[in-house]
Write a protein that binds this DNA or RNA. Structure first.
Length: 636
RNA sequence: GCGCCGUUGGUCCAGUGGUAGGACAUAGCCUUCCCAAGGCUAGAGCCCGGGUUCAAUUCCCGGACGGCGCACCA
């Protein structure tokens, strides 16, 4: 999982002259403009990063943490709006990837012992040595500099001091400018946050750099819960931590973030997905071949086509790309600024057969939103090797297989006195020989002798002492290590992208307006309730309405401060899709009778600012249906 | 981590070697029966530490934080 996308994007699209541009947004006029717009309105899509960060802070989406103490780089606090939005996004992810897929969710600790990360490879893989050139200032991987210029192959495993000595000894130079690196300090850094478990430092622990290991280490028990039936999927939404050298770009590059991951455990020989539900899903794809071609471009295709054409090698990956595309669209990511990009061969981990990233264009750069990797049996095999537990499942054959098998059961009371310390090794060698070459026993006959070699020494003994025999053995199955399919999505980046992609600026009655076109399902607040003015009992009535809506489970904001237009704009800026206003007509005191029936309220839609009058007693039903997408505003 | 630039009410900015001003926002009152209107009023700020100086928000040094570039991103 890399952020190569960022690098690639900024190098091909030119440096984004950042910062100063001030005003909002680039692309004029909206595509997808099926909604009616206020007359004369020009609607701008997309905020620049500065506008968005300012809105986020001012309106309570997110802000840098601990500002009172100078702030700390790479950590953000979600404010009231942001926490609600994040929760809503997580809820839709859970709905789609856990519930609707029939998977189960777990919640593992964020701190785990060192042994877990030895097995996972993070302890070595995340521990890099850097040396900086005194002339040109470029930083290089010190271990790579040593490996590339000496016969040493595993400099990464050496202590920092030794690497420094090696650089001096071989008079190694900067790969960039050729200046000598001798005497330069080699800086050690580990991207994992380290801590101690319990008192003292005898039990080191680390904050997990990804949530996945929390699932992998519990595989033996999780397989038990799944009654050892493949395939089964385990999901987790949780925090992960990486001590990034240089956090950047607001929420897009942070030190603590939320991942939503699914680990699907499959039998690689049996389990294939049903592509039916996603075969017709279209998305922009950017395969490796297109990226490497001089005139290559992303292109639109269906999931089904991509599998048929063999571009997506693994049907399981294709399946989850389809699921993810619909999910991203559901939470408000603009599909005109979205694509699936295949990892280049040099980019993916050695165990990954095929790997695709979901990417979104934000502020002119393509950023990684999530990764879809076929991880084979890599993770489970590693934990099987490093831990005491068994990370396989027993797979029953359709029919039990009965074979003739040559077996020995040597008489240890003979072998012991005869061969002393080598007795056990001799017994093992006999078992091995029987399996490989039973003829050695059969040809010697009951009264013959058989010989095995252990550590270069030949041991000979009578066949009669080995209890050699050929038996029918019935095997009902075998132990296999499941393969893992992993869709892994970053929630924070998704949230930032949604804010960026749903930001709109237009003009209503000559006044500028900024709003978030958030899908009703994820909007932090579903409905704002206002009295037209806070007098003559309007306030009391509106309070009643708000209370009733809250009791029905809707997320409601009540506001009676200032002019009505101001209150609409407040809700627009945090993406509240609907506002309800109680006026004199509601109370049955309408002064001009053109304006609706007594007992009705106005419902105003955020995106068009259009209004409809509906009876107050229908509000719960109507707004719930609007939120859930069972009713469109135009049908009111 | 290196380099360049920056940091002034909630937000965005102006300005100054004698501790600051605006816009928007916010709160209160008045007005107004539907889109940031108007009037009056109020609260709220010079990132932190050190140095120079009679005096530092301002000048110098360091730090933190931010933007950009480089590096890093298993």
């Amino acid at each position: 999982m890399t952020d190569d996308a960022e690098r690639r994007a900024s190098s091909t699209e030119g440096s984004d002259a950042e910062g100063a541009s001030g005003g909002a947004a680039s692309s004029e006029g909206s595509s997808n403009g099926e909604r009616e717009q206020p007359e004369g309105a020009t609607r701008e899509r997309d905020a620049d990063g500065q506008t968005l960060v300012e809105l986020a802070k001012r309106r309570g989406f997110f802000l840098q943490s601990a500002g009172a103490y100078g702030g700390v780089s790479g950590f953000y606090t979600f404010g009231p709006q942001g926490a609600a939005l994040k929760q809503a996004i997580e809820d839709t992810w859970r709905d789609r990837f856990t519930i609707r897929e029939g998977n189960v969710e777990v919640d593992a600790p964020t701190v785990m012992p060192e042994a877990v990360f030895e097995a996972s490879g993070h302890l070595d893989g995340f521990d890099d040595m850097l040396v900086e050139c005194p002339e040109c200032g470029e930083s290089h991987r010190a271990d790579h500099v040593v490996e590339d210029n000496t016969d040493l192959e595993d400099a990464e495993a050496l202590p920092v001091e030794e690497v420094e000595e090696l650089i001096a000894e071989y008079e190694l130079v900067c790969p960039n400018c050729g200046a000598g690196l001798a005497g330069q300090a080699v800086e050690d850094f580990n991207l994992m946050f380290a801590t101690n478990i319990g008192p003292g430092d005898s039990s080191p622990g680390y904050l997990r750099p990804e949530t996945a290991q929390g699932i992998f280490v519990e595989f033996p028990q999780l397989a038990e819960y799944a009654r050892n039936q493949l395939p089964f999927g385990v999901t987790q939404i949780g925090r992960a931590y990486r001590n990034e050298i240089s956090p950047r770009k607001s929420l897009l590059r942070v030190r603590e973030f939320t991942q939503a991951e699914l680990e699907l455990f499959i039998d690689p020989e049996e389990d294939e997905p049903d592509l039916g539900p996603v075969a017709d899903v279209t998305a922009p794809f950017y395969p490796a071949t297109e990226q490497e071609a001089d005139d290559g471009d992303p292109y639109e295709a269906t999931i089904g086509e991509m599998v048929e054409d063999g571009v997506i090698a693994k049907p399981w990956i294709a399946y989850y790309l389809g699921v993810a595309k619909e999910w991203y669209e559901r939470i408000g990511v603009d599909m005109d600024r979205f694509r699936f990009r295949q990892h280049l061969s040099g980019e993916r981990a050695h165990y990954a057969a095929d790997c695709w990233d979901a990417e979104a264009e934000v502020d002119g750069d393509w950023i990684e939103l999530g990764g879809f990797a076929y991880r084979s049996d890599y993770d489970l095999s590693k934990h099987d090797e490093y831990s005491d537990d068994d990370f396989t499942v027993f797979k029953q054959y359709d029919e039990p297989i009965t074979t003739e098998k040559a077996l020995v059961d040597p008489d240890m009371s003979y072998l012991g006195p005869e061969f002393g310390g080598a007795a056990q090794d001799v017994a093992d060698a006999l078992a091995d020989l029987a399996d490989r070459n039973p003829a050695a026993f059969e040809e010697a006959g009951e009264d013959g002798e058989v010989s095995v070699e252990v550590d270069g020494e030949e041991y000979t003994l009578p066949v009669s002492q080995t209890d050699f025999r050929v038996e029918e053995v019935t095997e009902s199955g075998e132990h296999i290590t499941p393969h893992v399919v992993e869709p892994s999505l970053g929630i924070d980046r998704a949230l930032y992208t949604v804010l960026d992609h749903t930001y709109r600026a237009d003009e209503v009655d000559g006044e500028e307006r900024a709003f978030l076109e958030l899908p009703a399902e994820v909007a932090p607040t579903t409905v704002g309730v206002f009295p037209l003015m806070d007098k003559d009992g309007l306030g009391e009535k509106a309070q009643d309405v708000a209370r009733e809506l809250r009791e029905a489970g809707l997320s409601v904001t009540y506001d009676d401060a200032g002019a009505i237009g101001r209150r609409y704009r407040r809700q627009d800026e945090v993406g509240t899709p609907f506002c309800v206003t109680v006026d004199y007509t509601t109370l049955g005191e309408g002064r001009d009778d053109e304006d609706g029936e007594p007992g009705t309220v106005t419902v105003r839609e955020r995106d068009t600012t259009a209004q409809q009058r509906i009876p107050a007693e229908d509000l719960v039903e109507t707004l719930t249906a609007l939120r859930d997408g069972d009713l469109s505003f135009d049908d009111l």
